[in-house]
Design a binder for these strands. Structure first.
Lengths: 198, 198
DNA sequence: AAGGCCATGTAAGTAGTTACATGATTGA
DNA sequence: TCAATCATGTAACTACTTACATGGCCTT
């Protein structure tokens, strides 16, 4: 049940139409929760039905832009969901499965596929790093030096505390993306090196 | 379309009944492709229908053990699938989504959830490391020292090349698991440190 | 007025999840 | 013989995917 909450989050960050949401699910939100426009429109309908969001102005005509905003009940539902415990799902990765299958039936040119994936992950990593440079320039500079410090330094300034907490959380999410892509790039490097001398 | 191929791989490694498969999908195979017994039985039926596998001996009675083995057509289908290109799926992680939601509605005791996940991932990592010690003792010892070397050294010995290639691939998959869990443990550490001073 | 794009949808199919049902075997 | 457990399944539901449909707007 994550999609409705992803949409609520996106709409709280900025009220949007279905198409705008679709685009945002191709970029920022989509980096950790993807969705197609069909899913989004259907879910917008359900959320409106449930009274968690509402379409803003007036004419509900087909082919007409419809902008949605979150109602108090929607914010409450999201707040509740954030606290809910939910176990991490086990990994489910077709590429790892294919490697295991290759151990039985032989590499069938799988190394080319590994190289292709490596290129894709390198590109994604570069994109995340650009975003970090753009949106979190100060933190990005410090990131290389200290790993798990982060505590005392920046918290001192009283001004704009709310915004700084928000930005800190967003940066954490981006860092997860960067570290995950880094993992893939490194592992694929090992995998290619270990598989080529066949 | 990964589940049928996961089952074919498992059955090639060792012919099994539905329940045995279910158990293996809770352990080794399940580390990168999980499935419930309902999924497995349904898929076994489909695979048998398609002539890719067959039940071994005789009496197809309800409540009776049924052991399956892979037919040549099944091996061929798996071989073909290994070579098929397939793009990596974008990340889809509810925990990251909740962090992003928390940036908008506030942490609602989310730090406890982060600590809980950290413990779970630490346990999983320990389990993977045990498996590595048990199944790949030589390689595990070398792993700490050289990262992306792996090329020249071990490949020289001609004896048992088939088995060694198989084991090398299986080890690669396990290493992916280890490195992924390591990522989570490190990132959750950062996240908790960055979130606590709230 | 025609073609392209913006915007919102419907329909059908597949995969995965949750809850329940049924028969066989074994040990108390 | 009763309960527990092994083993195989059915049914209903939810989430996601793929393909297609419809209408409005803008440019030429």
């Amino acid at each position: 049940m994550s999609l409705p909450h992803a949409i609520l989050t996106a709409l709280l960050e900025r009220p949007s139409s279905g198409l705008e949401l679709t685009r945002r699910f191709d970029r920022s939100i989509g980096f950790f929760w993807s969705a197609t426009h069909q899913q989004i429109y259907r879910e917008l309908g359900r959320l409106e039905q449930s009274g968690l969001i509402q379409a803003v102005p007036g004419p509900p005509a087909r082919g007409q832009r419809k902008e949605y905003e979150v109602l108090p009940a929607g914010r409450a539902a999201l707040t509740e969901w954030v606290a809910e415990p939910q176990d991490p799902k086990p990994i489910r990765d077709p590429l790892l499965l294919r490697l295991r299958a290759a151990a039985v039936v032989g590499l069938q040119g799988l190394d080319a596929e590994l190289r292709r994936h490596l290129a894709l992950h390198q590109r994604q990593l570069a994109e995340y790093r650009e975003i970090e440079q753009r949106d979190f320039p100060a933190a990005a500079a410090a990131a290389g030096a200290s790993a798990a410090a982060g505590a005392g330094a920046g918290a001192g300034a009283g001004a704009g505390a709310g915004t700084s907490a928000e930005s800190r959380l967003q940066h954490l999410v981006l860092q997860a993306g960067i570290q995950l892509e880094t993992f893939w790039v490194e592992w694929l490097g090992q995998a290619i090196a270990g598989v080529v001398p066949e």
